[in-house]
Amino acid sequence: MSNKKATVFVRLKDGVLDPQGITIQKAILNMGYDQVASVRSGRFFELEINAEGEQGDKKIEEICSKLLSNPVIENYTVEYEK
């Protein structure tokens, strides 16, 4: 059985203050790129899982909601690759 690969992106929900994003945006503006209207920071994880099909997807969803993201402040999306 081959490993299933998934990339998980975790982002702050709209409306949640992102001081890191704001600071990065300020740095970008200071560099002279004054076209940049906003920056939101986030993080991603690459997972390899020994489970196929829908069962594997379900496990990854569970891991995302229980551990990788905090549902109070964050959303996640998953991209699968074979």
Binding site: V16, L17, P19, Q20, T23, N70, V72, I73
Partner: peptide, 8 residues
């Protein structure tokens, strides 16, 4: 939840 301090 607790976020990063606003002043970083």
């Amino acid at each position: 939840a607790l976020l990063r301090n606003a002043h970083l």
